[in-house]
Amino acid sequence: MSTELPESTVSPPTRAPFTTSRRTFIATTTLAGGAVVAGGLFVGPNALGDESAAEPPSGRVSLTVNGVRHTVMVDNRTSLLDLLREHLDLTGSKKGCNAGACGACTVLVDGQRVNSCLTLAVRLDGAEVTTIEGLADGEDLHALQQAFIDQDAFQCGFCTSGQIMSGVGCIKEGHTGSAEEIREWMSGNICRCGCYTKIVRAVDHAARGK
């Protein structure tokens, strides 16, 4: 069976004159659940106007995302965020700044909250990744997802998946002793809509099992 990998509509942020505009992530093959499911696409540099004909250095990684094992060949430049969004079709994690400065891309790697935009996928061999898509248990939402709904802790929703993943980490780390502590330890997640008061309340409620 072979699947067509989607052509990216997003170009990585580039700066003249040193960069080319081609996407930074090129995945070639995917093996999921141990079986080969994809084989085909290689977005060649030439197709995108790159001067060099050589394939960019890439590496093979086996990682578990939301309980599903994937073995992928990734261009070494691919971030975990791009792997999730562009290749594994898990678009819940968002790209805000792509520079560690907003938290929209927060996921758990081996149980710890990290910025997936600054994480190179090729480094994640053997890692366990949890994204917003893997938080609910079937139809049962995670307590913090429910708390965000109950507290109405978002407006546009762009930051929300990152907020929730970060909140899961924050609760796990035990930094929910007071509203002030939650604010400080959730400060790695920016909300342009300014829903901070309700976000803090949602984390507080979930932490105390309300």
């Binding site: 560690g100 938290g103 927060t106 710890q112 909250r113 990290v114 910025n115 600054l118 994480t119 970060s166 980490g169 924050c170 780390e173 930094h175 330890w185 959730m186 400060s187 790695g188 997640n189």
Partner: peptide, 9 residues
């Protein structure tokens, strides 16, 4: 320094 996420990395 930085954020909880960055400090984990």
């Amino acid at each position: 320094s930085a954020s909880a996420q960055l400090r984990n990395m």
